[in-house]
């Protein structure tokens, strides 16, 4: 896995967040969700700042952060390939999709490609079992996939990225 640089956390953003949520009970999960929404992951610095500001012990912040599978402590790729590995997708070949991505992008589940374009993330049931096997990329669902279609999807995303980064 490539070593990725962590970003600088915006102090004002954290303070505003604390002001918004800080005086309400039980909002740690929501605060972490908001940080992740902004940065794509939860930087350790952000966690420390909030802990200090709201006087929540570090142990508790980390406890909550590490309990949930959808909080990430490392930066992630632009496109997170969420491949459903629920029952229906499993019996219809979700494993083959995961293998294809591993082979094509040379990454293991949970890892990013070196250019930070893709992250491979097998996820629990996405609830579109009738169209198994399926995957979701930035909230768009793709059904009835095959290893070849998965490959096509990766190519499409690559060209989407290229055309977006080209100067107009």
């Amino acid at each position: 896995m490539s070593q990725t640089k962590h970003i600088e956390v915006d102090q004002d953003f954290i303070e505003n967040l604390c002001d918004e949520f800080g005086n309400r009970e039980g909002t740690v999960v929501q605060i972490l969700q908001r940080i992740q929404e902004k940065y794509g992951y939860v930087p350790a610095d952000a966690l420390d700042m909030i802990g200090e500001y709201l006087e929540i012990p570090k142990s508790k912040m980390y406890g909550v952060l590490t309990f949930y599978s959808q909080f990430y402590r490392e930066p992630r790729g632009k496109y997170v390939l969420k491949i459903c590995v629920g029952t229906a997708c499993h019996v219809r070949g979700a494993g083959l999709l995961v293998d294809k991505v591993k082979e094509e992008l040379k990454i293991e589940p949970g890892e990013n490609t070196e250019d930070m374009l893709f992250t491979l993330e097998p996820v629990s049931c996405l609830g579109s079992c009738a169209l198994a096997p399926m995957a979701m990329v930035t909230d768009t669902a793709y059904g009835k996939l095959s290893p070849d279609k998965m490959l096509g999807l990766i190519k499409d995303l690559e060209s989407e990225h290229l055309s977006a980064s080209e100067p107009a």
Binding site: V85, G86, T87, A88, H90, S124, C125, G127, S128, C129, A130
Partner: peptide, 11 residues
């Protein structure tokens, strides 16, 4: 929090 894999009634 419909978590059972293979279930999407609530969704």
């Amino acid at each position: 929090d419909e978590g059972d894999p293979g279930a999407f009634m609530d969704r």
